[in-house]
Amino acid sequence: MFKIVKKRVLADVSKLMEVEAPLVARKAQPGQFIILRVDDNGERIPLTIADSDKEKGTITIIFQEVGKTTMQLGALEEGDYLSDFVGPLGQAMELPTTGRIIAVGGGVGIAPVYPKVKAFHEAGMEVISIIGARTADLLILEDEMRAVSKELHVCTDDGTKGHHGFVSDILQKFLDDKSQKIDEIIAVGPLPMMRAVSNQTKPYGVKTMVSLNPIMVDGTGMCGCCRVTVGGQTKFTCVDGPVFDAHEVDFVELTRRGQMYLQEEKVAVDKYEHECRSGGGR
């Protein structure tokens, strides 16, 4: 059992939790993820390691309540326990040591971008960060991102905070500015956003990395559920990724595979909400 030692509501449905997992914390590196199960009937879901603290032996996860499992997770409080928590899984991200880097985080994707930017910052590199959300209330980790970025650009789709528009608008300005070379772009967010950024940067030939979050079961390369075509080859996100070169990723296939269980996800949410309303649960 793994204890939730801290919980913070970042935005309406975005929550942060610190979970006691000393073995995982000892090894966690930026880019890696964990898999958790809320309870004995639970599914295994992957979540990016947003932060880790070796001394305290904790791992920070940030999630948006989008399905049954994340809703159930969000309903837990400090002092509650998770059945299972395993990691760190996946490859650590390769950190360039020189150059100019732009990090782009969309919505809950700001959470997985943060540890990467923090790692760059700790390595003494300057990162330009662009974060965005649908509306100001959904914007997460603004202060944290500001603390580790050289510049932070904020945008909201509805203009309630920062630039009125998309992260791509701001990114475009940097791409158009020929006076300063961009060495690498890291973009994490919902699939459509990562796909858009990838399409946007491709003509400029700027190396663009994305962190993928497909459906997984075991997370150790055993099942192949998370397979994705990268550069024409099948890769397993859980062991070969989760960070890949965006320009090589087959986003059409990835999007399609992500929708395989839409129907079942709805069934599970409906059942959960019904149980919550009737005060039951299991």
Partner: peptide, 14 residues
């Protein structure tokens, strides 16, 4: 994951 017991167990199988 006992998908044959979905939705009592959370993992489905298509």
């Amino acid at each position: 994951m006992k998908a044959y017991l979905f939705p009592d167990y959370d993992t489905p199988i298509k």
